[in-house]
Amino acid sequence: MAYSDKVLDHYSNPRNVGTLDRTDPRVGTGMVGAPECGDVMRLQIKVNEETGIIEDARFKTFGCGSAIASSSLATEWVKGKTLDEALAIRNIDIVNELSLPPVKIHCSVLAEDAIKAAIEDYKKKRQQQKG
């Protein structure tokens, strides 16, 4: 399969690879996919509690090149956004940006799910703190 230049770029130079402290109340972690399905994405966000803006994002992904590129791109996009803005990111935006072929659309879906899961995790933590 031929990859788009953008997929190749994210694969060769993945942005924001790494791990944030999962116990930090400002950090939300989303992990989606399963090893037997051939892809697992873990996306983490760190939220500034005063401004509500995502200050940092990190990912690690087990999966094909398109899965790696989709999650790398997702971390780039969520940075600097509010939670609501980040929730508005749709998988089709990722498909278009990376020119993913139809068989790789599920990679973009997974990336969208990972963003949502990370935000949900962050919100849950906040609630628990308040409660």
Binding site: P14, V17, T19, M31, V32, G33, A34, P35, C37, V40, M41, R42, K60, T61, F62, I68, H106, V109, L110, D113, A117
Partner: peptide, 23 residues
Amino acid sequence: ELSPLYEMVKEGVDLKSVQWVKD
């Protein structure tokens, strides 16, 4: 280095015990 699974295994997590979110 990019694999969450490798990191988890190195931290001693048993991947079989993880509740995976399948699509």
